[in-house]
């Protein structure tokens, strides 16, 4: 009951946020431009970058922005004056971030007019990446004080993680590229590309690397969530 009421209110709040329309329009324009301008040979690589971007922007934005805004407007404080538990608030934001990311990802398939060669691999990779980005969003949302500090502190983190893993570092510095195989995001990008093109990649290794970072992120979050409420409940 509590979780459903929270989820309903959160969805109502998100869909009325003008930022959502901005993201939606940006994604459509970005996807449309790529489809129109990219040569067929580069489309799969660029599609992976687009999917990485949607997983990041939707996955981290929903929990991070809603947490920062609710702190700023003292809405979280009002929630915690009811019997609601901090983990219930985070669960709702996490699930909505994951679902939002998956829905946006599916929508981008329509825009890009892509058909994945290995759909299950793509879905697995995208889900794991979304779980990571949602975890990152929750972490940032828990750490920041308001939307301003989220903009100042959170955006560079996201941009760094994304650009460091989606730009073609392999062409510039192969050692960096090799190192990135053990850092978050690039393993997921490789899996996404493999899901689209059908090329062979170390699936288990990449999945385990991403799952390890995701689990670590959520373990840190679990510790911070307990400190979110003012009381020890």
């Amino acid at each position: 009951m509590t979780v459903f009421a929270l989820a309903r209110a959160q969805v109502q709040d998100i869909v009325r946020n003008p930022m959502l329309l901005f993201f939606f329009a940006t994604a459509v324009v970005m996807g449309g431009l790529l489809k129109a301008t990219m040569p067929a040979s580069a489309r799969d690589i660029m599609a992976s970058a687009v999917f990485t971007a949607t997983a990041y922007f939707v996955g981290w934005n929903i929990p991070a922005f809603t947490l920062a805004e609710e702190k700023e407007k003292r809405q979280l404080e009002a929630l915690f004056l009811t019997p609601v538990r901090p983990w219930q608030v985070i669960l709702v934001k996490g699930v909505l971030g994951l679902v939002g990311s998956l829905v946006f990802g599916a929508f981008m398939f329509l825009i890009l007019d892509q058909v994945p060669r290995r759909p299950l691999l793509w879905l697995t990779a995208y889900t794991v990446l979304s779980l990571f980005t949602v975890g990152l969003g929750v972490l940032l949302g828990l750490l920041v004080r308001d939307t301003r500090s989220l903009g100042l502190g959170g955006t560079p983190v996201i941009l760094l993680l994304m650009t460091a893993t989606t730009l073609p570092w392999a062409l510039v510095q192969p050692r960096v590229w090799a190192l990135q195989a053990w850092l978050p995001t690039r393993p997921a990008v490789e899996l996404l590309t493999a899901g689209l093109t059908g090329e062979a990649v170390p699936v288990m290794r990449n999945l385990l690397v991403m799952l390890a970072y995701t689990a670590l992120m959520w373990l840190v979050n679990a510790r911070l969530i307990r400190r979110l409420s003012f009381a020890r409940n």
């Binding site: 209110a9 109502q12 709040d13 009325r16 946020n17 003292r74 004056l81």
Partner: peptide, 12 residues
């Protein structure tokens, strides 16, 4: 509790 800042969800 009625806090000094209402803490209402203003898009709802």
């Amino acid at each position: 509790v009625v806090p000094d800042q209402g803490g209402l969800f203003d898009r709802l």
